[in-house]
Structure formats: structure tokens, C-alpha cells
């Protein structure tokens, strides 16, 4: 899924399975096939199903 790629001297880039869809219009995004977005959609679905959404409780005062 997420992986580091580099030149051997150390990881250079941590790639995500999400893709940048902000360059598309909403109409273009709707027309984009599921196959193109498959990895991103799987990650999105996994996020939504995760039971561990962190909610912070915080005593912010003394």
C-alpha cells in the first residue's frame, strides 16, 4: 500500500494509495471509472469502516 521509494540511500517518497482528484471537476470525477480510482476508493471505504476514529478529550485548563 504505502511504500517508500528512493535511490537506496534512504526513503525519498512515501506514496499514498489516494490520488489527487482536485484537478478534476466534479463532472469529470463522476465520469472517471472506478478502475482508475480503485485503490483510493478501497482506502476510503476502509477509513469509513474503521472503528477507531480518534476523538480527543482534553482538559485544557488548570
Amino acid at each position: 500500500m504505502d511504500e517508500a521509494t528512493g535511490d537506496g540511500a534512504g526513503p525519498a517518497v512515501w506514496r499514498s494509495t489516494l490520488v489527487d482528484v482536485t484537478e478534476l471537476s466534479l463532472a469529470e470525477l463522476a465520469a472517471t471509472g472506478d478502475d482508475v480510482l480503485a485503490h483510493a476508493l478501497r482506502r476510503l471505504a476502509a477509513d469509513l469502516e474503521s472503528p477507531d476514529e480518534p476523538i480527543a478529550g482534553f482538559n485544557s485548563a488548570f
Binding site: P11, S16, V19, E23, T32, V36
Partner: peptide, 13 residues
């Protein structure tokens, strides 16, 4: 084709 998102190692650190 949408491009993959990524963070450089320097950004992650």
C-alpha cells in the same frame, strides 16, 4: 488520470 499523492521523507519527518 489523477496522479498519486505522496509525502517526501523530509516532509514526513
Amino acid at each position: 488520470m489523477p496522479s498519486p499523492l505522496a509525502l517526501s521523507d523530509a516532509e514526513l519527518v
